[in-house]
Amino acid sequence: MGPVRTCVGCRATGPRSALLRVVAVTESSVELVVDVGRRMPGRGAWLHPDPGCLEKAERRRAFGRALRAAGQPDTSAVHRHLEAQEQDVVG
């Protein structure tokens, strides 16, 4: 089955290949970026590619804890990535 990771949103485990890796990029503020190749440096948080899991993670403030980042990181890039994936599936 390969490596197993835990989703920071729903806390369910799953194969690494089924989850998105999200890393924090710090410039003036902390912003989350989807690590498509799963090779970016630094701590990563794992998330199901489901808007519901992203919403749960934001509500629980799980990204700040998982990535050891101060404050609530900006998740707009992750929202855009999930929206683009949904549109690819739809048509």
Rank of each mutant, 00 (worst) to 15 (best):
A84F: 04
R5C: 10
P3K: 12
D88L: 15
R80V: 13
P3S: 14
W46K: 05
L67M: 02
V30Y: 07
V90F: 05
L82P: 04
E83S: 08
F63V: 03
W46G: 03
E58S: 07
G37Q: 08
Q87N: 07
G2S: 11
V36K: 00
T75V: 15
G37W: 01
D88C: 05
P3F: 14
L32K: 06
E58R: 14
C7E: 15
A69P: 00
V34T: 01
T26I: 10
E58V: 14
H48L: 03
R68S: 15
Q85D: 04
E86K: 12
T6W: 08
W46C: 03
M1T: 11
L54D: 10
R80D: 14
T6A: 10
A12R: 15
L54T: 10
G64Q: 08
T13L: 04
P15I: 09
C53K: 14
R39W: 04
V89A: 11
Q87E: 08
R43V: 03
P3I: 09
P41E: 06
A45K: 02
H79L: 12
P15Y: 06
D35K: 00
R5L: 06
V30L: 06
H48W: 10
P3H: 14
A70G: 13
V4K: 11
C7F: 06
G14N: 06
A77P: 01
P73M: 05
K56E: 13
T75M: 03
V4W: 09
K56L: 15
G44Q: 05
L54P: 14
R38E: 06
Q85P: 05
S29L: 09
S76R: 15
G9N: 10
A77Y: 03
S28C: 00
V33H: 04
L82F: 09
T6C: 12
V23T: 09
E83Y: 07
D35F: 01
C10R: 13
M1I: 14
E27F: 03
G91Q: 05
R59L: 13
S17F: 09
S76I: 08
G9E: 08
D50G: 07
L47H: 12
A18G: 11
V25F: 03
A70Q: 12
A69F: 02
A24K: 04
T26H: 14
A57R: 06
M40L: 09
T6N: 06
R65F: 08
A12Y: 08
C53E: 14
